[in-house]
């Protein structure tokens, strides 16, 4: 218990240090606008990968419409802040919550037909849902700007709020996974029939995970909208959903830290190596196939990176954080 407290304190300290280092670097212009943009994109992708991992990794359901939920969040929040007369901060907070709720509601609407069916249908239904959402956004161009895009969204997102919202997202999903509900979700992944026979309500838990995942995708979408200030419905197509899936698979299905590392790497790499961007998807697809053939649980599997383990390594003794409950 004492160890646990020390561990939490250490994590909080580490986060604060990371935060202030970045704030210092940004304010001293060491990180210029271009790199700051990459940083924002990384954090938004981390949120998306972590929330997708809840459904794909922990619940074991392949969904291909995550970009659609993100789009709902982005458009709902942008529509709100554009007309809102409230003070900036208040209107941004309300917009974020609205974005999450709207995306979660869409998640429920899609989830009810999808989750009654077996695994494979969910992939197709969520994919279709993503396309429907994009189609509706383009169709209602009076409000959304259609395929010309939505412009002049106030730029409320900055490093600080995106950083802390990302941390909250990770924390909430981490807590869910390590709670009673999370264990039920994992049990469904391991064996649906066995889970049902010990009294887990499969449909409810699937909807629950689906809903939470959509909520955070919506929030990520809202942050994206208020960072980019310009929304193009074609940003949220099937390929973006696939890219999120690639992050989850590379990071390990069922490993939150894996998703974070993968989202970081896969977002930063193409920005740094611009020549690489043409061959990016080719390489990813080959890696995807190879990973599935040889290590189907993803690159890092369900293994979580542990800072304590690294610390233990330096001290030259075995780390005590073998339990699944520890990060």
């Amino acid at each position: 218990m004492k160890n646990n407290f020390k561990y939490t304190a250490f994590i909080v300290l580490l986060l604060l240090v990371t935060y202030f280092v970045f704030v210092f670097l940004i304010s001293s212009k060491t990180i210029n606008n271009y790199y700051q943009g990459i940083l924002m994109l990384i954090m938004i992708n981390v949120m998306l990968a972590v929330s997708l991992n809840l459904v794909t990794g922990f619940l074991g359901q392949l969904t291909l419409g995550h970009a659609g939920f993100m789009a709902i969040g982005a458009y709902v929040s942008a529509l709100f802040t554009k007309v809102s007369e409230l003070p900036d901060i208040l209107s941004f907070v309300i917009a974020l919550i609205l974005a999450g709720i709207a995306a979660a509601a869409a998640g429920i609407i899609i989830g009810i037909p999808a989750l009654r069916l077996k695994g494979d249908y969910i992939a197709i239904l969520t994919l279709s849902a993503g396309e429907i959402i994009r189609g509706l956004i383009i169709y209602f161009d009076e409000y959304t700007g259609g395929s010309r895009g939505m412009k002049m969204i106030p730029a409320y997102s900055n490093f600080s709020n995106v950083f802390w919202i990302m941390i909250i997202t990770i924390f909430v999903i981490y807590s869910i996974i390590h709670s009673r509900h999370g264990r039920a979700v994992i049990a469904i992944r391991e064996d649906e029939i066995a889970a049902e026979s010990v009294g887990i309500n499969i449909v409810n838990y699937k909807l629950f995970a689906f809903c939470i995942s959509a909520f955070f995708a919506g929030v990520a979408g809202a942050l994206f909208a208020h960072y980019n200030t310009l929304l193009d419905p074609n940003n949220f197509d099937y390929n973006y959903s696939i890219e999120m899936l690639i992050m989850v698979v590379f990071g390990g299905m069922g490993s939150l830290t894996g998703s974070i590392v993968a989202a970081l790497g896969l977002t930063a790499l193409p920005q740094i190596l611009s020549d690489f961007s043409n061959y990016r998807m080719l390489l990813y697809s080959i890696l995807l196939i190879i990973i599935m053939l040889f290590k189907p649980s993803g690159l890092f599997g369900t293994h979580e990176f542990s800072i304590m383990a690294i610390g233990g390594l330096f001290k030259g003794k075995k780390s005590k954080t073998k339990k699944r409950g520890d990060l």
Partner: peptide, 19 residues
């Protein structure tokens, strides 16, 4: 293997052919 692995492989093959 679990279904999800085969599905992800199928997506991988699809992206591979396209690219």
């Amino acid at each position: 293997a679990p279904r999800i692995s085969a599905l992800i492989t199928a997506i991988g093959v699809s992206i591979l052919i396209q690219n």
